[in-house]
């Protein structure tokens, strides 16, 4: 054991409380330098003017110091508004579908035996540990017009509908439908896990009491389980909605290039058009529209939750 007598100089140095400062300062300085500073640059860049130099921007000189033209363009060119709307629609639909599939799965997980539950939870997490790209790739294989999956769906469709509605194959690739489907597939574990964590903690005796008093199972669900699981629904919803709204990979691989999502627009402005100020303005607008309201909401929701707990 390293007692007081065998202290190394390093340990002595730590003991003079210097280690407290180091523990705070090292990650603090790192995040300020590599996370906060880049965002200050993005905000500043959104007011710069694009130039054909390298790096492709300038402040002042013959250009206005605070150039707000890029923000004006967000409203003038309907490309941007349409991209925001497409993103919100796709991400919102994906979140809703994740909830509709994930909620019963999470509830089901709380009702199976503990041995099964551990195995099934592993199976929920397993796809998350395999590569995200490969999971998107798996769907590219399934959605193509010659795949067994597409043929199966086409055959079912043709069997179901009158003959003049029959299709040779179902066009799935490069549509918004494909984007939503693959987003649901990729983000479903993010919905199931917080919901499961929330539902697992619920007090089952409330259900039983309500059942004993003559409620039907579905009423018990509506009156007790659902209201109590709202925090889980919100947590899961945010974990799906936020990354989905800024998604770049999925729309660029399976989406409709004519209806880009906002992540694609930012990436194209930056890399293809080399318009750093415009890409920055679109980014700032995305943060202001989606991310900042959500962060403020969770911040104040957390505060009021703490207050309720203290009051109780």
């Amino acid at each position: 054991m390293a007692g007081a007598h065998t202290d190394t100089s390093l340990q002595r140095w730590f003991n003079r409380k210097g280690w407290i400062n180091v523990t705070i300062a090292a990650p603090y300085v790192w995040l300020v330098l590599f996370f906060l500073l880049p965002f200050v640059i993005v905000i500043a860049m959104s007011f710069a003017t694009r130039t054909p130099t390298a790096p492709p921007f300038s402040f002042g000189g013959e250009h206005p110091v605070l150039n707000t033209a890029h923000y004006a363009r967000l409203f003038q060119d309907d490309l941007y508004i349409r991209a925001y709307l497409t993103s919100i629609a796709n991400a919102g639909l994906a979140t809703l579908l994740c909830l509709l599939i994930g909620y019963p799965m999470a509830l089901g997980l709380t009702r199976v035996s503990p041995a099964w539950r551990n195995i099934l939870l592993m199976l929920v997490i397993l796809p998350f540990w395999t590569s995200f790209l490969l999971r998107v790739y798996a769907w590219i294989g399934l959605m193509g017009t010659n795949s067994w999956f597409n043929k199966l769906l086409t055959a079912s469709w043709n069997w179901l509908v009158p003959t003049d509605w029959a299709l040779r194959s179902i066009p799935m690739m490069n549509t918004n439908f494909a984007v939503v489907l693959v987003m649901v597939y990729s983000y479903l574990p993010f919905m199931i896990l917080p919901l499961y964590a929330n539902l697992e903690k619920l007090d089952r005796t409330l259900d039983e009491a309500s059942m004993d008093l003559g409620s039907r199972p579905f009423r018990v669900f509506l009156d007790i389980t659902l209201p109590l699981s709202v925090p889980g629904i919100i947590a899961g919803g945010l974990l799906v909605f936020i990354p989905a709204s800024g998604e770049l990979i999925i729309p660029s691989l399976v989406g409709n290039a004519g209806q880009p999502m906002i992540g694609r627009v930012i990436s194209d402005e930056f890399a293809s058009a080399r318009d750093w100020p415009m890409a920055s303005a679109v980014s700032v607008a995305l943060l202001m529209l989606l991310v900042v309201p959500i962060m403020l909401y969770t911040h104040f929701e957390g505060k009021s939750h703490e207050k309720r707990k203290e009051g109780a």
Partner: peptide, 9 residues
């Protein structure tokens, strides 16, 4: 909660 595209650029 930051969209990856924004962190990237």
């Amino acid at each position: 909660v930051m969209p990856e595209v924004i962190t990237g650029i």
